[in-house]
């Protein structure tokens, strides 16, 4: 008889967690390069078989368990900004970022230049090129990023020449689901997952990749979660009423 309550409780617990995932997606609806999360559920069977108590198929009790959050790695919409330091990656590639903790990967291409003239992310971490950090000179102007990530600038006063300052390093992964979100728009690769050079992705200068959160889907999911939670709550309430009346009736001592 406790099964109803416990099964319902397992459902409510995962619904709450799914709600947290939806809330995080909606909160990041305007975050550059953000990839939406999705909850995955699985049926969790109560182990019924015992040597002295074999429970057959007709008495199967399944609980619900959240197995994983998977990431939707679809590209977000590209917003035209016209800023020469905004780059959007077109394809599956990631930009490589040097952090104090090691190499990280990002799709957030809103870049800046720091006081040393190095190309950095908004968080101040170095963006790596194929030959390490990309550094600009004080007299550089008209920064141009070509489709393969090569960064050229114009320099010189009398004779103006185009000089190459570096090439953005783009990497890809066999299974991007193995990447771990670290916050600050960064992904880390766990041990054993190696980044491979990406030659297929293209870079769009003057664009940023917005969040790929589909707010309509998130709002629908939100309604679904709230309503399911409510109906599970009312299920538990009915079960409680049932038990209450059972106790009252069974314990009713005739006078």
């Amino acid at each position: 008889m406790e099964n109803t309550l416990l099964v319902a409780l397992s459902r409510q617990m995962v619904l709450e967690r799914q709600m947290d995932v939806v809330a995080n997606n909606v909160a990041n609806a305007n975050t550059n390069g953000f990839k939406a999360d999705k909850s995955l559920f699985e049926e969790f069977l109560r182990s019924g078989a015992h040597e002295d108590n074999f429970v057959g198929n007709d008495r199967r009790v399944s609980f619900v368990n959240d197995r994983a959050t998977i990431r939707d790695f679809a590209s977000g919409p590209n917003l035209q900004t016209g800023n020469p330091l905004d780059v959007a990656v077109n394809g599956n590639g990631f930009l490589v970022v040097q952090t104090p903790a090691g190499e990280r990967y990002t799709r957030d291409g809103a870049l800046q230049i720091n006081a040393q003239g190095q190309l950095v992310t908004n968080g101040g971490n170095l963006v790596l090129g194929t030959n390490g950090p990309i550094t600009f000179q004080a007299t550089d102007r008209d920064i141009n990023v070509s489709a393969d990530g090569t960064i050229t600038v114009r320099e010189g006063t009398v004779t103006q020449v185009d000089s190459i300052r570096g090439k953005l390093r783009l990497v890809t992964f066999n299974n991007p689901q193995q990447l771990v979100k670290e916050g600050a728009n960064l992904f880390t690769a766990p041990a054993g997952v190696a980044a491979q050079p990406d030659t297929l992705s293209r870079v769009n200068q003057g664009f940023v990749e917005k969040s790929n959160v589909n707010v309509v889907t998130e709002m629908t999911r939100l309604m679904e979660i709230t309503r399911t939670y409510q109906s599970v709550a009312s299920l538990m309430q009915q079960q409680n009423d049932l038990r209450k009346s059972a106790i009252q009736m069974l314990a009713d001592v005739p006078a």
Binding site: R17, A23, N28, Q112, G183
Partner: peptide
């Protein structure tokens, strides 16, 4: 093959100017 990551929301990292 996959894990459960629950995010805590969003933060503002800066309000840079577009010097175009």
């Amino acid at each position: 093959p996959v894990g459960i990551d629950i995010g805590g929301g969003v933060k503002t990292v800066g309000t840079p100017r577009l010097m175009t």
